[in-house]
Design a protein around this nucleic acid. Structure first.
Length: 792
DNA sequence: CGTAATGAAATTTTT
DNA sequence: TTTCATTACG
């Protein structure tokens, strides 16, 4: 994007020069939004607005940093507050902690910690067998919090079984969190949200203090965030939000797309500015992305345009295997780099789920191409790091039960299940924390002498460590490592695994040192803990480093790259299978792909593989239904090379099971193994199993008709329409009930298509199918040869 | 009480 | 494939 140019379009200028009153900036991808926002901040300050009255709320720290540095280049260092919602709330909450029953040194639990807390709660509530998995309850609680519903307000939907479990667990969980002086991510927002709602005085005070609020990525805010922004903009309604409904991709986290769609209703005299010109992508890319997104129903009409070059066509490449996909893409990248046309950092590879990164890591590494993997769970989630961090948390907040449980016997000090149970019961009986109980082991009869001594030793270690709590962070970490015996136990174990753990711990020491240097030693332990609690994966991504970027499409939001590869555009993966039933979520998946595509500046390739190995299992794939919504005639479509079978998978190995014409020999064990969509997965009784098995075999046989044919679509393309499989071998009927709108289907004559609509019932049940190449057709399901295009 | 081994299950996206 | 949990054994 052109940052240096001082020229602004009329629309941009309008937004930049707006000062008082609500402002809605509808900004398409690559429309120079960040530039507009930062210029507006600069403009506000230049117009005499005190910098400390301006607050910019972003989604990631990365975005905040970016804005800060841009504002700085415009007006120099200032006291404008820029950061994430969570950080902002955390800051407020530290100051007003006592109002919600917390101490200012509260701990922020990550999702792992809060799940542990929840599990403990469930265990100790001797719940009537709620066979709900803690995960489900956790997400129900999270949902409530995101919607500003406190434990007291929570009301289960009538007859909703999960709800009635939640209605009991939620208050108990919350109470325990308070005892532990801890909050989870959602609490940061919830507590501030309720404070503002219930404390008019405080609300007015803060509204006064933060007069100019700016919310970025507004389409991804949830109800609490909305409520917070709103509460701070009542007396001083200078709320400016930017966003793009088409880029709303966090609905599963409670984000409410209505927040942006209804903004004009909430603030009637809002000024609306639309930024529709794209400065990022080529015309070709933009056109394809637009063709995709128009398939969404719930959206604000928007036409994107660009004055950029036409560019090269968007590619849609069909590989034989996931391996080949990775290898070929890596090859391309290698060639471009070797020729000097591109640098590694020009490239990005996006996928739907992190689990898909491996093949690409491997292929890039093989070629010596530097890359950076932006992935969750990387550093702060590792066991050894969490262990050490838990000591720090315990020092900072002795009430932190989750931390205590984590380290009380790490390294092992002879404190086992029984001892912990004794401590827990004692703590529960007196409504106190585990650490408090640990300090008075003498009073606990259930504990033997040996256990009591062991616990006493642990308490002593923590107490001693706590004395140095005000030292520089690096020093504290160092002491933890030595005094807890953690480091020693790793060194002595001799396990290879522990070698790398030691290395990671070294890394943590470095992080601590850098923190000390960056914020000065007086910043202290609590600041360090807060800092590390609120980082996220994308924050670790470094723009300057010259490496190929590997990340999920979610992480890619807000970034841009000259060349983008979007991989694994396959049914069940790109529209993720968990979104298939719900049309809203399917639209969200489409937006996700849209976001991914619009990250590309010059070149974009979408790809899929016919065969993909996932969770250690080979699977045949079905092309993403989104691919059928793209203007293929404007794109460069590449099908697998004819000789692909000589590649990664040995043909014999893979096709063994259905090689001979007679079909399937039930006694052939190998065949069974190769038969991924085994009868079991279809469920049902034996007869159905047999049918399903036959269906699978039939599809497999079709695929094998010519060994280069691997999908129904290809099957269709290279075959006479009338040359359908012989009747005797065609797939058995499938229940009309199995069909769903949006489902990918196969027809022996028309090939691959997607169910556009369903009507009628029973024998009248009719499907309207949009075929890739054969147009739209209707079928009476009862008699048709239409079949779901399942992975085979 | 601690460790090791075995077996089973589970796998989206993230502040 | 990886991770988790349970169990058996020392």
């Amino acid at each position: 994007m052109d940052v240096s140019s001082n020229s602004l379009t009329a629309a941009q200028r309008e937004a930049v020069e707006h000062i008082d009153g609500p402002l809605l900036i509808l900004a398409g991808p690559g429309s120079g939004k960040t530039r507009v926002v930062t210029q507006r901040i600069a403009h506000l300050v230049r117009q005499g607005v005190p910098a400390h009255q301006i607050v910019g709320l972003t989604f990631t720290n990365k975005a905040a940093d970016e804005m800060r540095s841009r504002v700085e280049t415009l007006i120099g260092p200032s006291r404008v507050w820029l950061g994430t919602f969570h950080r902002f709330c955390s800051r407020l909450l530290r100051r007003y902690a006592s109002l919600v029953g917390l101490d200012e040194n509260f701990t922020i639990y990550d999702s792992d910690d809060s799940l542990r807390m929840l599990k403990r709660t469930l265990e100790q509530m001797d719940q009537p067998p709620t066979h709900f998995m803690p995960e489900q309850i956790r997400s129900a609680i999270s949902w409530a919090k995101n919607n500003l519903i406190t434990p007291q307000q929570y009301e289960p939907r009538q007859g909703h079984a999960l709800g009635s479990a939640v209605v009991r667990v939620y208050p108990e969980y919350q109470a325990r969190m308070r005892i532990a002086n801890a909050v989870d991510f959602d609490d940061l927002l919830l507590h501030v949200g309720t404070l503002l709602r219930e404390n008019a005085e405080l609300r007015a005070e803060l509204d006064e203090r933060y007069r100019y609020i700016l919310v970025d990525e507004y389409q991804d805010t949830n109800l609490v965030q909305y409520a917070i922004a709103r509460a701070l903009s009542i007396d001083h309604p200078n709320l400016a939000v930017t966003g793009d409904p088409d880029q709303s991709i966090f609905g599963w986290r409670g984000a409410n797309i209505s927040n942006i769609l209804d903004f004009q209703r909430d603030y009637p005299d809002v000024k609306v500015v639309r930024l529709e010109q794209n400065y990022r992508s080529s015309k070709q890319i933009l056109r394809v992305a637009d063709a995709l997104i128009v398939h969404n129903q719930r959206r604000k009409e928007k036409r994107l345009f660009t004055e950029n070059d036409e560019g090269s066509p968007v590619r849609l490449t069909h590989y034989a295997t996931h391996r080949e996909e990775a290898q070929r893409i890596a090859d391309e990248i290698a060639v471009e780099i070797a020729s000097g046309r591109r640098r590694p950092s020009d490239f990005a590879i996006f996928y739907r789920i992190n689990a898909l990164s491996r093949a690409f890591e491997f292929a890039l590494r093989e070629r010596g191409i530097p890359f950076q993997l932006v992935k969750g769970l990387e550093f702060y989630q590792r066991k050894e790091i969490k262990d050490v961090m838990s000591y720090l948390h315990l020092i900072n907040n002795p009430r932190d039960d989750v931390a205590l449980l984590r380290v009380i016997n790490t390294p092992t000090r002879g404190i086992g299940k029984k001892t912990i149970l004794g401590l827990t019961e004692h703590a529960t009986r007196y409504g106190q924390t585990l650490f408090a109980s640990a300090q008075e082991t003498g009073l606990i009869e259930a504990l033997g002498k040996r256990a009591a001594t062991a616990v006493g030793r642990f308490v002593k270690i923590v107490d001693h460590l706590a004395e140095t709590a005000s030292a520089p962070v690096e020093e504290i970490v160092g002491r933890v490592l030595s005094e807890s015996g953690y480091q020693k136990s790793l060194q002595e174990s001799g396990l290879e695994e522990d070698e790398s753990r030691l290395a990671n711990i070294e890394e943590l020491l470095t992080v601590a040192r850098e923190f000390d240097e960056r914020f000065g030693e007086e910043a202290g332990l609590s600041a360090f803990l807060e800092e590390t609690a609120l980082v996220n994966d994308v924050d670790q991504w470094e723009e300057e480093i010259d490496r190929v970027t590997l990340m999920t499409m979610h992480s890619a939001k807000g970034l841009e790259f000259p060349v983008v590869y979007i991989v694994a555009a396959e049914e069940g993966l790109l529209p993720h299978e968990r979104s298939r039933e719900d049309p809203d979520r399917l639209e969200e998946e489409r937006r996700l792909l849209f976001v991914g595509m619009t990250r590309a500046e010059e070149e974009l390739q979408l790809s899929l593989a016919t065969q993909r190995e996932f969770r250690g299992q080979r699977r045949r794939t079905v092309p993403s239904s989104f691919l059928m919504e793209l203007p293929r005639e404007q794109m460069k479509v590449v099908e697998p090379a004819a000789d692909w079978t000589t590649g990664e998978f040995e043909e014999d190995e893979f096709f063994d099971g259905w090689e001979d014409d007679d079909g399937f020999d039930a006694t052939d064990e190998e065949a069974d193994e190769n038969f991924d969509e085994s009868p079991k997965e279809f469920g049902g009784d034996r007869e159905e199993d047999a049918e399903a098995a036959e269906a699978g075999r039939a599809t497999a046989r079709q695929a094998d008709a010519k060994s280069t044919l691997t999908t129904a679509a290809q099957l269709h393309e290279s075959r006479e329409p009338t040359a359908a499989t012989p009747k005797t071998k065609s797939a058995p009927p499938v229940s009309p009930e199995e069909f769903r709108v949006g489902m990918a289907v196969v027809h022996p004559e028309y090939g691959l298509g997607k169910v556009a609509a369903l009507s009628g019932s029973a024998t009248q049940r009719t499907a309207t199918v949009q075929f890739v190449t054969a147009g739209e057709r209707k079928f009476r399901l009862q008699h048709s040869a239409l079949r779901p295009a399942r992975e085979t």
